[in-house]
């Protein structure tokens, strides 16, 4: 992995279309601005990972879906 040290206010450019701005550093928190093409989604890693895993689980369902209207089970 490439590691680059930057100061607040400096930027990193990835290719011609993606720019990361180091906006603020406070304690262990870094605020990063991201400019990217609209077609390129940007996610917080932990949300992306959770959704990826949930999609895989939904796709792995080995059961038949119930037929007919669904009635909520009695609590």
């Amino acid at each position: 992995m490439l590691s680059i040290t930057r100061r607040v206010g400096e930027r990193i450019v990835i290719g011609d279309d993606i720019v990361l701005h180091v906006q603020e550093v406070s304690g262990s928190t870094v605020r990063i601005g991201i400019e990217a093409p609209k077609a390129l989604p940007v996610y917080r890693e932990e949300i992306w990972a959770a959704v990826k895993e949930e999609n895989a689980r939904a796709a792995a369902a080995g059961v038949e879906l119930p037929r007919g209207p669904v009635i909520p089970p009695a609590a």
């Binding site: 077609a39 996610y43 959704v51 990826k52 796709a59 879906l65 209207p69 669904v70």
Partner: peptide
């Protein structure tokens, strides 16, 4: 799906309804 499904990719999916009474589709 211009971006695919997150983590699964794919660019085209069909909505299949196997039972019109059911709230579930594929």
């Amino acid at each position: 799906f211009p971006r695919g499904l997150i983590g699964l990719g794919g660019s085209r999916y069909a909505l299949l309804t196997t039972d019109p009474e059911s709230p579930f589709s594929w």
